[in-house]
Design a protein around this nucleic acid. Sequence first.
DNA 1: GCTATACTTTACCATTCGGTTTAGTATTGC
DNA 2: GCAATACTAAACCGAATGGTAAAGTATAGC
Lengths: 118, 118
Amino acid sequence: MVKYSQAQYDASFGALSDATRRGVLEQLGRADASITALAERFHMTLAGMQKHVGILERAGLVITEKVGRVRTCRLGKRALEEEAAWIESYRQLWATRFDELDIVVEEMKRKEKADGRN
Amino acid sequence: MVKYSQAQYDASFGALSDATRRGVLEQLGRADASITALAERFHMTLAGMQKHVGILERAGLVITEKVGRVRTCRLGKRALEEEAAWIESYRQLWATRFDELDIVVEEMKRKEKADGRN
DNA sequence: GCTATACTTTACCATTCGGTTTAGTATTGC
DNA sequence: GCAATACTAAACCGAATGGTAAAGTATAGC
């Protein structure tokens, strides 16, 4: 199931585990934005937003570029392909597992009936 | 884009942000397991594994049941539907955004040519 | 009934997280 | 050149993480 490094999954799922950061991603999906703009939109200090952007950047989900005194944030090259693949792979495993359990349940019902006849 | 509570996304993406917990999910996809079995398989103390299982349980990804002195862990009812949906939705946004940027780049190229003619 | 097993609880530890404040640096605009 | 703007860096804070060890409880098996 491992598609790429565990550390990458750690970083990207970790990045997604915070509502503010998910919001920033959605926002950047609509338009690039400066750190100040993002900080205002999410009601937090500049320094606070900087940390969130740093986490998104380290996860490869966002890239930033400083021009003059403004650092502009935009979506990175990675569109969560591997994360989507991991989840899909898990969902498949999950479905298979539940099919197995269904079989077990069926088996149990069958046995119960048989026991009832003894 | 919000499909259900932010806290739910926080919990499940947070649960997925650790390699041990992802491993536990994959393991439980193959067979149910006791806390002790999981602790051994992932080379950690019982108490340590108990915390991981607790996090997975709170995220709704795992359910446990104690019979006698053994607590058995199995996959929960939720198969990361909403998380998969969030990521897919984001991937769509991402693709759209990059199409927009392509248009901007095209526009710039067009203008450059026009400027070159002046 | 005694022992081993399986878990639970608690306390502890270092690190990270999500946030702040404060003080600094670099740019812009008048 | 000077004030405002935009970020950067650092220190600090309380809470959560990821792990441990140690002591307690409950159950299984002889």
